[in-house]
Amino acid sequence: MRSEPPRSGAIPARPVDPLDPQRLDNQLCFAVYAAAHAFGRAYRTLLAEHDLTYPQYLVLLVLWEEEGLSVKEIGTRLFLDSGTLTPLLKRLEGSGHVRRARDRADERQVSIFLTPKGRDLQGRMACIPDQAGGMTGLDLGNRRELLDHLVNLRSGLHDGAANGRERAADQA
């Protein structure tokens, strides 16, 4: 087998430095991004029999904790804007899992409630967290520790972004 001669203008590969901070494998952001995609694929499989998407499942988790939240409150809990959340809620309503109700005092506010079908789903899906957790290859203690680290990571990034916006506003 003959190897191809280098193309004209091709940049030769740099020597691999495992400690190079610009190496893809050394990027925390990429590791989190890739893990999120892997979780998405895993949950797609687990949720398929319930005909739910992962974002729909997250909405149901919020409502199983507390019903009657406004769209804005659900969005805040899930870090989703109303433009993303509203169509998702409409699909959940269309499938009979939730109902939307306008606030009588303020017609602009919409609260979300579970239907009996949505409540019933909670019991049938109780095994999902353990199934997903088992797919990680981590035991319960390590999953809990990782969760704590990721919550701290999210908080740190959120606080850092807020501080960066404040500094930028001060400089303007």
Rank of each mutant, 00 (worst) to 15 (best):
A132D: 11
L80W: 13
K72H: 12
D139A: 12
E107T: 12
P129E: 14
T76H: 02
D103P: 11
E65I: 01
G96C: 13
L52A: 11
G156Y: 02
S155T: 04
F39W: 14
S70P: 13
T115V: 07
R104V: 03
R99Y: 05
R119C: 09
L147G: 14
D51N: 10
W64A: 14
A36L: 04
L150C: 05
G94V: 03
H37D: 03
G141T: 07
D139V: 10
G94Q: 01
G160H: 10
L153N: 00
L157N: 08
L92W: 01
E67D: 05
A48E: 11
A42P: 13
R108Y: 06
H50A: 08
S111G: 07
P129N: 15
Y33H: 10
L46M: 09
N163R: 06
V71K: 02
C29Q: 13
P129C: 15
R100I: 07
E49G: 07
R44N: 05
N163D: 03
A105G: 13
L138P: 03
I112F: 06
G118Y: 07
A101P: 15
G96R: 11
L80R: 13
A35D: 09
D106V: 07
P87Y: 06
R44S: 11
D120S: 15
Y43E: 15
L63Y: 14
R154I: 01
R77M: 11
K90F: 06
G160T: 08
D130P: 01
H149W: 09
D159S: 08
R104C: 00
R154W: 02
S155M: 05
V71T: 04
P55N: 07
V98Q: 00
E107S: 14
L92M: 01
L92C: 01
R99P: 00
I128G: 01
V32I: 12
C127D: 02
G68V: 08
T115Y: 14
P55D: 04
R167N: 09
V32L: 05
R44K: 11
G75W: 01
V62W: 11
L78I: 12
L153A: 02
L153P: 02
L146P: 06
L89E: 08
C127S: 03
R154T: 01
F79T: 14
V32P: 13
L69C: 11
T136M: 04
G134S: 12
Q109W: 03
G94M: 01
G164N: 14
E107D: 10
D106W: 10
G75D: 00
A132L: 14
A34E: 04
T76C: 03
G137M: 09
R104M: 00
L150A: 06
T136I: 08
R165V: 14
P87A: 02
H97K: 01
E145C: 09
Y57H: 08
R108V: 09
D51P: 06
D120W: 15
T115M: 13
E65V: 00
L52D: 11
D130L: 05
R108C: 04
G83N: 09
S111E: 12
L153K: 00
A48Q: 14
I74N: 12
R167L: 10
Y43I: 10
L146R: 12
S155G: 08
R108Q: 08
A36R: 10
N152H: 04
